[in-house]
Amino acid sequence: MLSSYLTLAAILFCIGLYGALVKRNAVVVLFSIELMLNAVNLNLIAFAKYGAAPSLTGHIFTLFTISVAAAEAAVGVAVLIALFRSRGTVNIDEFDEMRR
């Protein structure tokens, strides 16, 4: 059963990766990152149950991840709002400050 969960997590992760690399709307990129985080959470929980030594540590870790993800989402959305205010767009193509 474990490998089924892991495969599902891999599928989710890859979809999220593709979205994060391709989508032009920064908000959608944030969604994709959440997808990848969720895939990781799924792995953690699956191992917590089906791993060699089941324990609650995986759960604790997932809780931490969720909290950090929440913080990330909040800060990310705040950054986007600030960007939108100064640039008038959240189109990721328009941001190429790293070139300079």
């Binding site: 690399l21 990721i92 941001f95 790293m98």
Partner: peptide, 8 residues
């Protein structure tokens, strides 16, 4: 090109 997606 300065775009994070390309770097990624």
């Amino acid at each position: 090109n300065g775009q994070a997606q390309t770097y990624g």
